[in-house]
């Protein structure tokens, strides 16, 4: 059973040899193959090569084009720095005032710099391993993108001070993300992941007003273009689980602060829950024995379609034996 079959069968609730290993890999990948961080963000060949190596060596079941949150910001014209050996940095907000909103041009992914690089990454994945692995494109969800463009503190006040303007900004973000997602699907992505971590800071009312409707429209567009959708909101999302299930996503990631059993129950009939052990305390700092226990606990709490990952990105400095331990725990689980 290859990874593609494994994920498809598991999502359908059909028997599998082991639950798919859906960990999110970013900064860990270039470090693993001994390449400087900056190349991972700027050169799709490095992103693809390093992720393929990680997937093969640690039995991951998805090849992802996720790297950092600032691809779209860059293509909108924002300033992003790429330190030689660190993650990208965006310390200056592009949209300081809503007066500049009309100047915000939605980019064409095919003529952009960083989204175009991601599209090429998907094409390369497809050529190298498209029949074996599901290929996952990535976009920021509209609310997260608005935060990337305007700043977290600003958006957190805009929800009360400038709701109309914020909706205008969200429409622009939505359009950019739909174009980016569809282009990745055309390039061969089987699923599109979307990150909306910033939305975890909203309570249910505001999440329902400013995040969910845009997630729904983005996900509908992904489905229409023929791919699956994966919603990733890290942080403690307990208060919005009930709303997230209405997003339409096929896979919903669950961070470690959420009770996984509750999440699986909430998503039953709506989506496959994917989670949820602590990336830092368990994966980076834990022992293989502790990791096995954590993985099995998630599998015990889950359903026949439950997927497994650490609540968020695998930390850069994770010991290799710990990442191996996740795969081994999945392989050895006795109760599939």
């Amino acid at each position: 059973m290859n990874s593609k079959e494994r994920l498809t069968r598991r999502l359908a609730g059909k028997p599998v040899d082991r639950a798919p290993n859906c960990n999110l890999i970013m900064a860990f990948a270039p470090l693993y193959i001994g390449k400087p961080q900056s190349q991972f963000y700027l050169d799709y060949k490095v992103l693809v090569e390093s992720n393929l190596r990680v997937a093969k060596d640690f039995d991951l079941d998805i090849l992802g084009a996720i790297s950092d949150p600032f691809r779209e910001v860059f293509d909108f014209g924002g300033k992003v720095e790429f330190p030689e050996d660190d993650i990208p940095l965006c310390s200056d907000n592009l949209l300081k005032s809503y007066e500049d909103l009309p100047k915000l041009q939605i980019f064409d992914p095919y003529r952009s710099t960083r989204m175009q690089d991601r599209i090429q990454g998907i094409e390369l994945y497809k050529r190298e391993a498209g029949s074996e692995y599901p290929i996952m494109g990535w976009v920021e969800a509209p609310f997260a993108e608005a935060v990337d463009l305007r700043g977290m503190n600003e958006i957190m006040l805009d929800v009360y001070d400038h709701p109309e303007k914020l909706h205008q900004l969200l429409e622009i973000c939505l359009e950019a993300e739909i174009r980016s997602a569809v282009a990745q699907i055309k390039a061969g992505a089987d699923l599109i992941g979307m990150g909306d971590a910033a939305a975890s800071l909203l309570g249910p009312d505001l999440f329902g007003a400013f995040a969910l409707p845009y997630e729904q429209r983005l996900i509908a567009a992904v489905h229409e273009a023929g791919a699956l959708a994966r919603l990733h909101i890290c942080g403690n999302t307990t208060a919005i689980l009930n709303l997230m299930k209405l997003s339409g996503a096929d896979i919903i990631d669950v961070d470690w602060k959420v009770n996984f059993k509750l999440a699986c129950e909430t998503y039953r009939g709506y989506a496959a829950a994917c989670g949820n052990f602590d990336p830092v305390a368990v994966v980076q700092q834990g022992t293989p024995a502790r990791i096995r226990e954590a993985v099995w606990k998630c599998l015990d709490a889950g359903d026949a379609n439950t997927l497994i990952m650490a609540g968020c990105e695998i930390p850069l400095s994770t010991p290799h034996e710990n990442l191996k331990a996740i795969a081994e725990a999945l392989r050895d689980y006795p109760r599939y």
């Binding site: 503190n153 957190m156 006040l157 929800v159 009360y160 800071l201 909203l202 309570g203 505001l206 208060a239």
Partner: peptide, 10 residues
């Protein structure tokens, strides 16, 4: 968990 970050900020 009765209020969230935006409410705290305002």
């Amino acid at each position: 968990g009765q209020i969230f970050v935006p409410e705290m900020l305002i």
